[in-house]
Structures are given as structure tokens and as C-alpha cells.
């Protein structure tokens, strides 16, 4: 359940951005997570609903963009998408690879008014 502490960071960032731009209400929060993280979308939405109450984002909606993993083979150079279980290069079979995308945890944007 580390989604709760991740969501606290979401709200810290969202409140700060809202306040420093001179707005009072947050209507939408957009996040991106990579599939290789240990984040559960259900737990994230639960944490969002629990933490938004009584604050400037009380009626905000949450949009979550999930990024599929992508790696580069460090032997043959191929770039490829894969699922979270298999990172091996599909071109040459090498196991020496570098994850390019899939471990993101980011707040992309907020809509405020």
C-alpha cells in the first residue's frame, strides 16, 4: 500500500501548482505510471478518493496514463516493446538490455479554476 504515500506526493505537487498560479480549485489531475512499477491502479484510485476529501481537489477527477515497458538491446541495438515479465531481446535473444520506459511515476498536469 505505498500508493498512499505516492498519492500524498501527487496532492503536494497539485496543491502547490494550483496555489502558486493563483487558482483555488483543482478539477482534474493527470498522472503517468509505467507498468514495471509496483503501483496498483485500484489502490491509487482508492488513495485519491481518500485524500482528496475536504481539500481544493475534493471534486477533481483522476486520469491515469499507463506506459507499456520498452527496452533497448545493448548488443544488437534493437528497440522493442515487451510485457513486464520478459525483457529479453526478441531480435538476437540477448539478455543485456536497458529499460527505456516502464518505471515512470509522474504527475503530468493539473486543471485548475
Amino acid at each position: 500500500m505505498h500508493e498512499m504515500s505516492i498519492m500524498e506526493s501527487v496532492f503536494d505537487n497539485a496543491y502547490e501548482a494550483c496555489k502558486s498560479s493563483g487558482y483555488t480549485t483543482i478539477t482534474r489531475i493527470e498522472l503517468t505510471f509505467g507498468e514495471m512499477t509496483e503501483i496498483s491502479e485500484d489502490s491509487l484510485r482508492f488513495a485519491f478518493d481518500a485524500l482528496k476529501e475536504g481539500g481544493p481537489a475534493a471534486n477533481a477527477e483522476l486520469a491515469i496514463n499507463v506506459l507499456a515497458p520498452r527496452s533497448q538491446c545493448l548488443e544488437c541495438g534493437a528497440e522493442y516493446d515487451h510485457d513486464r515479465f520478459s525483457v529479453k531481446c526478441p531480435e538476437c535473444g540477448s539478455v543485456i538490455t536497458k529499460l527505456l520506459q516502464g518505471r515512470e511515476m509522474q504527475i503530468d498536469a493539473v486543471e485548475v479554476e
Binding site: 506526493s9 494550483c18 509522474q106 498536469a109
Partner: peptide, 14 residues
């Protein structure tokens, strides 16, 4: 109403 782009890692402090 405004759309504020943040693109900030959530574990930046960590």
C-alpha cells in the same frame, strides 16, 4: 480555468 503542465516525477524528493 487553466491547464498546468507539470511533468514532475512523484518520487523526486525521495
Amino acid at each position: 480555468m487553466a491547464h498546468l503542465d507539470l511533468e514532475k516525477p512523484l518520487l523526486e524528493r525521495n
